[in-house]
Design a protein around this nucleic acid. Structure first.
Lengths: 214, 214
DNA sequence: ACTATGTTTGACACGGTGTCAAGTTCGCTA
DNA sequence: TAGCGAACTTGACACCGTGTCAAACATAGT
């Protein structure tokens, strides 16, 4: 009697092998510098060794491919940064380490992240996905700031949520622009700039205080 | 004898009137929340009261329309910010004023700037235009920082170019994200966050110095 | 041998773009 | 006032990429 599930293990692995081939093809094409928006389904399929029509057996469309390609990476990104947020040792050293991890991951997966950032500009679903990811970073940053404000290692007048928001988007955007501008994101000067801003924005004080509103 | 220039003043103004109508139509549609990438030439033309074909008499394509629509605004943006860079009075107050101007302009022309930012993600020409504009801001910021480092009002170990780069992109990205996230860019809390980061990043010092590399 | 599944090929409709030719309107000028 | 010429319209076209479909084929499992 034919069951609902006729697939053998072999077929299952074949399916995931093909998916993997599509993933690889897409990443390879992106790494070759082809902008995501210029990528044609046909190109991806051909590179993966299947027909264009077959592509649609595995993915609804280009967006789904990108999203699935990215969300493993998203976990990675997020986990890498937990050191600082969760830590309770030397704040500045932890912050620096967390930023290095994030930027390093950005460097390793630059072409993929570039694709997401670009797609998020005109695809509402990708935008939401990306904003949620950034939001998790901002939220974690906010709570870390607030925690340290209670410990009085961070000045109480700093608006935690807004500061976290802007710092996170700064990091995203700076990495992206530095990358597309041809720079290596592991560039120490670039990193030093970023780290310095985070450090002073959170732990810094301005000597000549002029306005209490800030 | 027919000269090369047969156009009367009337025709000239008619032409620019039509161009203006196209400009207005495009802005109106963007303001209604239609993403730039979803805008169809037909929509713009219809709204401007001309046929789709006629659109091409005035603009090569959508990109040219966007670019011309933006570069008046670009001048405005840039001029607004000169206060801080050129000034030599109270640095912090000038900085705050400059940021307020820029953010205010962003608020006034949010839908247009949103379109540029979005288009710059998948259109190389728009991207270049936008990066150049941001580059001018970063460059001006860098030279201001260096000037103040000579005057010893800014710490010498701060990397001027890199810091300026990240701060400028932070401002761009934060305004954009705050805007599309539904926030009013004139929101004081948001502004305070931004201004605070700039202020501490440039004029701030961290009490507990740990590493000279930063 | 038979069957279900995965895959290919080739075709199709759709939607938006940019271009073109032919025709219309209207103001200027001779 | 006849007619020229520019601006503009209508309608058609080729092009390209997308997503879907039907029919044929391959192949492994039973």
């Amino acid at each position: 009697m034919p069951a609902l599930e006729h697939r053998t293990d072999d077929q299952r692995t074949k399916r995931s092998q093909h998916e993997a081939a599509i993933f690889a093809a897409c990443e390879a094409l992106l790494q070759e510098g082809i902008p995501y928006s210029d990528l044609r389904i046909e190109q991806i399929a051909t590179r993966a060794g299947i027909s264009r029509t077959a592509f649609y057996f595995y993915f609804r469309d280009k967006r789904e491919l990108l999203l699935r390609l990215t969300d493993e990476l998203a976990d990675l990104l997020y986990k890498e940064a937990e050191g600082w947020w969760a830590g309770d040792g030397d704040s500045v050293a932890e912050l620096e380490h967390a930023l290095r991890s994030v930027v390093s991951l950005y460097a390793d997966h630059g072409s993929l992240l570039r694709a997401v950032v670009e797609a998020s500009a005109y695809d509402a679903q990708v935008a939401q996905f990306w904003r949620e990811l950034a939001g998790r970073f901002a939220e974690a940053t906010r709570s870390r700031i607030e925690k340290e404000q209670e410990l009085a290692t961070v000045a109480p007048e700093i608006p935690a949520a807004e500061t976290a928001f802007s710092l996170c988007w700064m990091t995203e955007r700076s990495c992206y622009q530095h990358l597309v501008g041809g720079g290596d994101p592991r560039d120490e000067a670039f990193l030093a700039g970023l780290i310095g801003i985070w450090r002073r924005a959170i732990y810094g004080r301005v000597d000549q205080e002029r306005r209490e509103t800030l």
